[in-house]
Every structure is written in C-alpha cells, then in structure tokens.
Simulated assay, not measured.
Amino acid sequence: MKVYFNNSCKICKAEIDLYKKEKIDEIDWVDITDNKLAEKETSKDSKQLLRRLHIKDGEKVLVGADAFLLLWKKMPKYKFLYKFFKLPIIFNIFSVAYEIIAFFLYLKNKKQLKKSNL
C-alpha cells in the first residue's frame, strides 16, 4: 500500500510523521511534492494530489476520508479511529469536516508552493 501525502505542508507532515513512527512494513510513504511518478501511479494531477490524502492499495486508489480509514485500519495503534470513524453517521460528519479542513490546507499550501517557486 502506498500513501501519497504532501510533505511540504507542515500540518500534513506532522501527522504523517506520527504514523511513520509505527513502522508498518506494508506502507510506503510517498511525498507528492513535484512527483510525476505519483501522478502517474494514481492517475491524478498535482493539484488533485495536493488537495487530499491518497492511498493506492493494489489497483484501487482511495481518497480523503476513505484513505484515512484504510490507513488507520492498517495501524494497530490507530485502529480505534478506524472503528469509530467508519460508523455511518460519524463517517458522514468526518467526510464533510475532512473536506473543509483539506480545502483550507490546500489553499494555504498552494500559496506556500507559489512563494517557493518565486
């Protein structure tokens, strides 16, 4: 399983760094920053990858809240999050909240990337 994340986002990086400490062998961590291979592997463009967390598990690509559920399911320490957030009503709330937070992080990071390209 490959987890595609934005390493240039301080908040995203901090969260992923917590997950990396779990040292789950079946997870490959892939920084999407200027990564054409990630675009090819996921069939997503750089803006789509920057906008949400993506996971490729086999041939399937999961995005956003669905990606987080799979990630938490694979990590014993975070399995309780999977069990809670997969509940139908909770998942719907989580999905909406994720999209709102991801949108603002996208706007913030889009500005950071533009500044770094100057």
Rank of each mutant, 00 (worst) to 15 (best):
M1H: 03
M1R: 01
M1A: 08
N7D: 14
C9A: 14
C9Q: 02
I11H: 02
K13M: 12
A14V: 04
A14S: 15
E15L: 07
D17N: 13
E22G: 05
V30M: 04
D31S: 15
I32S: 05
D34C: 06
N35E: 02
K36I: 05
L37Y: 14
A38E: 15
A38D: 14
A38T: 10
T42H: 05
K44A: 11
S46W: 05
S46L: 02
Q48L: 10
L50Q: 14
R52F: 13
L53S: 02
H54P: 08
D57R: 12
G58E: 08
V61K: 01
V63N: 10
V63M: 09
A65D: 13
A67Q: 03
F68Y: 12
L70V: 03
M75V: 14
K77R: 01
K77P: 07
Y78M: 06
Y78I: 00
Y78T: 00
K79H: 08
Y82S: 13
K86G: 12
I90S: 13
I93G: 14
V96H: 06
Y98T: 06
E99F: 00
I101V: 12
A102M: 05
L105Q: 12
L107A: 05
L107E: 14
K108C: 06
N109A: 00
K110P: 04
K111L: 07
K111G: 03
K111H: 09
N117I: 11
L118Q: 10
